[in-house]
Design a protein around this nucleic acid. Structure first.
Lengths: 348, 348
DNA sequence: TTGTAGGCGTTATCAA
DNA sequence: TTGATAACGCCTACAA
């Protein structure tokens, strides 16, 4: 009779202990890979565990350890595709571990946001959380995680924190390169659709854009800068503003693909051919950039890898610990330019 | 001194019991809204709870109740936008409850899939799960949920289960309507890009398409049917096949927006104007349908509402129970045609 | 290297 | 209507 009570339940640590003739604690040590354990004992216990198909109960562990085996994803819905890519990366990292992913959208803007998150973290006792931009840029949020004793990793477009708590891309440099490419092609009048005020990514990308123009000694009239909020609709409005200019810019850099797609859309709407009469570059390399016509030149943001890395940073020190200490996860990722049909030299 | 031990911890049920001069069990009754409770006692306990800011510990509850306060989303990544919309719907339903959402992608195709899911459900002891298509169409999976005692709701394109375990849309009828619209416009040679073999949604949509043609007594040569797997790339290949036909169809119905966008893309690539020379209809009303040029006529699938409803079905009977018994969630949702610029009467 | 006793914070049983 | 006591399944101290 392998099980303690009713046949309904799955085997517990007690069953394992009894059948292998050791104490619960010893079984616990095996489960948690305690170093001080007789090899023979360990082997015997592992055998019983395998025979029984025993799996430790996560709820009980959570209660005893005061921490759940869950990784949280906290975000403020920056962009659908991005959230999904991040989830994919996290799940790849969690694959094969005991961890699961729990998703928690929050409302930046809401005054109660910090309290909500604190409440959430204190209640759920997550093992760690991953913070997505733009909310990851909020320092108070990071401090909050520290306060409640929850590991965290922030994702962002620039160095936001120390390497253990951050995974970033080099947006500024990437956009500088993309803009330089437009200049190389011969463009001199280049419009910018900036991201929303207050977003670090928006600032970084804008600075990269300005860096490139400054290097080429091209001056940038304010009229060539329009602001969007990373949505298609806002990109449309910004694009219309730029396309109404006279003379019209021969190229536009949009701070993300949604807005880049909107530029193409707006151009077509008023009979402006892309790329013959207007070159366009986006940012993110989301599916839409490859699916519209013409396919959009864009900056590939290695978001899936970043998310995977962020999750791995959280998990380091889980099983046995020191082994992976020196194989530390990178905290800086490079974005690269993806050249597609939406850019050509200007025709004038 | 409100707390039992170290100041580090949050108040527990013991603190509440002591301060309100009742037993733990009574406090527990208050928390769980037990009906047999003296009003005065309840009031006093609630007051202490509120004063202390006491919140029950979910880990302890999970252990004692043998069920977590988590709703799982199990999917096989049918489509990025869809997964995200579903998450949004679920989270809307969970808003303000004690429940959180946990996301679990699985690998249909993998022989170990069912075992994986069983393992997952048995370990995590979820309160309930929501199954997304196409994996929701797998009856063995539904039976599995029953076996391990986990509530479930399946989402799909047709009635897959009894109303308590299902939320469905009427794809067949919706596609019949969309196709009839093409016929009304004068189209007689209409191509179909079907969904992948073995998907219920693919079958339903195809049948709706055939229903409309049959009603109008238009016969459908096999050459006008191409099959894709709901991805942009597969849509491209299917579109090329149809556009190479001679005579070329004057309209194409694609079984989802990704493939519809691919039709537009392929047409542009070979200089075929949409909608002047080719009308296109998609399905889903995902963002891309509105963002490409021309905007795609499509079928709006109320996926967010469906997901919200699915989650609510799971939660029914949680707090107090009977109250909401008659306000039962709908299990059938209607899709509607969204007319945009990608359809015009044929020019010949 | 291993075991014993007790705790984690809640709910269930059953008697009062 | 309420309370004492024992689960739930695991882990930490401390002792051996």
């Amino acid at each position: 009779m392998p099980f303690g009570r009713r046949g309904t339940g799955k085997p517990t640590i007690n069953d394992v202990a009894r059948l292998s003739g050791v104490s619960k604690k010893t079984v616990s040590r095996v489960i948690n890979r305690s170093p001080l354990l007789n090899d023979e004992t360990r082997r015997r216990v592992l055998e019983v565990i395998s025979d029984l198909g025993y799996v430790p109960n996560p709820q009980a562990r959570a209660l005893a350890l005061r921490t759940n085996f869950l990784i949280g994803l906290i975000h403020d819905n920056p962009n659908a595709q991005m959230v999904l890519n991040v989830q994919q990366g996290i799940l790849e990292a969690l694959q094969g571990t005991d961890f699961e992913m729990i998703v928690r959208p929050v409302d930046r803007g809401s005054a109660a946001m910090l309290d909500d998150v604190r409440h959430f973290l204190e209640r759920q006792r997550l093992y760690g959380v991953i913070l997505l931009p733009p909310i990851s840029e909020n320092d108070a949020l990071a401090r909050l995680c520290d306060e409640v004793g929850c590991r965290y990793v922030r994702m962002g477009s620039a160095e936001l924190d120390d390497p253990d708590h951050m995974v970033a891309s080099n947006d500024r440099e990437a956009v500088r390169g993309a803009t330089a490419y437009l200049i190389e092609q011969g463009h001199r009048s280049i419009g910018l659709i900036a991201g929303p005020h207050g977003f670090r990514s928006a600032t970084e990308r804008r600075q990269g854009f300005e860096d490139a123009l400054a290097e080429a000694k091209i001056k940038l009239p304010r009229s060539l800068i329009a602001e969007g909020n990373y949505t298609f609709a806002s990109g449309l409005a910004a694009a219309e503003k730029l396309l109404d200019l006279s003379p019209r810019p021969t190229a536009i850099f949009a701070s993300n693909d949604e807005m880049g797609a909107a530029v193409v859309h707006a151009a077509r709407q008023r009979g402006i051919d892309v790329p013959e009469q207007l070159s366009v570059i986006g940012f993110d390399d989301t599916p839409i950039s490859a699916h519209i016509w013409p396919p959009l030149t864009t900056v590939r943001w290695p978001i899936v890898s970043m998310a995977r890395s962020a999750a791995l940073k959280l998990l380091v020190s889980v099983g046995g610990a020191e082994a992976e200490a020196d194989v530390s996860e990178p905290s800086m990722f490079l974005s690269t330019l993806v050249k597609r049909a939406s850019v050509t030299p200007p025709k004038t």
